[in-house]
Design a protein around this nucleic acid. Structure first.
Lengths: 187, 187
DNA sequence: GTCTATAAGCAGATAGAC
DNA sequence: GTCTATCTGCTTATAGAC
């Protein structure tokens, strides 16, 4: 049996890019085959459950990447302000300075929502919780920390959506730039 | 020739509901046929350009509804605060208290973006401009009015996306509730 | 583990009767 | 204007050789 041409991780990277560009329904198996450079049958060898399993694997892969780039910095032992700055750098990388679509857009539509939706909920809830605890560490009362954390998540997702419709990365970049001030205002 | 079973407006309402639930790719002609109660051929009679024309018509229909519910109140001659309140009521109705998906999610994905994307841009740009002018009328300097208007739009879209992923209308409703305070703070 | 070839079904779209 | 029946092509998915 021939050795794999590319690593599973690289397969997931390319699948993720394809799904993020075309959406779940728009990314046909043929296109995924071309994007990965693997034949259809090879794709089914990696993911016997078919397209839905590919999407689930991509979502898990993105979740891990999100954890590494955004959540891990928030959990570090650095100063709260520094943790926030690292989160912002991580967001910029994860969303490629605003050019990548927000993940929710891709996996929370139609029937996919019932099968993969809970994973999205888990990631967002974890993000809000972790961010809120950083704001508490920065001296904010729990309730305010929580609603500000929620607002920050909403602002990031909203900026991605608006930027996509307007074909501009400016909303995303401005939102990130103003984030520390908004999160820490009145501290 | 038989009389039409339902008005074109009603056809558009039902198509809009179907697209908003399943997304563009997820809404097959068969499903659209069932959703509207019209046979496939009737659907093509209304929209000879096929599915993409149906989507374009729906987008235009939603744009008109958006104008009526959100932009018209902003353009009225009432007090600025009152105009903002009416916009918020309109948003709540347009998005059915947060249960309808944000429109950008549906029409700014994949190949559809290039054909229908500019309509979305136009609506969002108009919304931001109109809202900014209301904030100026309320006494805010132009630059601040504009960035706050942009932030409000971002917050609404973001709240819809986050709420969809988390299967909750709470983010949307809280965002609307806090909007007047945020738009008019420090006035 | 990869490939080519192919099966089975559904997609978008149309023809033509009424 | 609506319907049933149908066409073509692409979809997901599989079989089987290497």
């Amino acid at each position: 049996m021939p050795a794999p041409l590319i690593s599973r991780d690289e397969v997931l990277n390319r699948l993720a890019a394809a799904f993020r560009q075309d959406g779940y329904d728009g990314a046909s198996i043929s296109r995924l085959s071309k994007s990965t450079g693997l034949g259809k049958a090879s794709l089914y060898h990696y993911f016997p459950g078919g397209k839905i399993e590919m999407a689930a694997a991509v979502l898990e892969h993105l979740g891990a990447r999100f954890d590494k780039l955004i959540l891990a910095p928030l959990r570090s032992s650095a100063l709260p302000e520094e943790r926030l700055n690292r989160m912002i750098l991580g967001l910029s990388e994860f969303y490629r300075q605003g050019e990548s679509a927000c993940v929710v857009e891709l996996f929370a539509i139609g029937e996919l929502q019932s099968s993969l939706g809970s994973a999205l909920d888990t990631v967002l809830a974890g993000w809000i919780d972790t961010l809120a605890s950083v704001l508490e560490a920065a001296g904010q009362p729990a309730a305010r920390a929580r609603s500000r954390a929620e607002d920050a998540v909403i602002a990031v997702e909203g900026a991605l959506v608006v930027g996509r419709a307007r074909r501009s990365v400016e909303p995303f970049q401005r939102t990130l730039a103003e984030m520390p001030g908004r999160l820490l205002a009145g501290n």
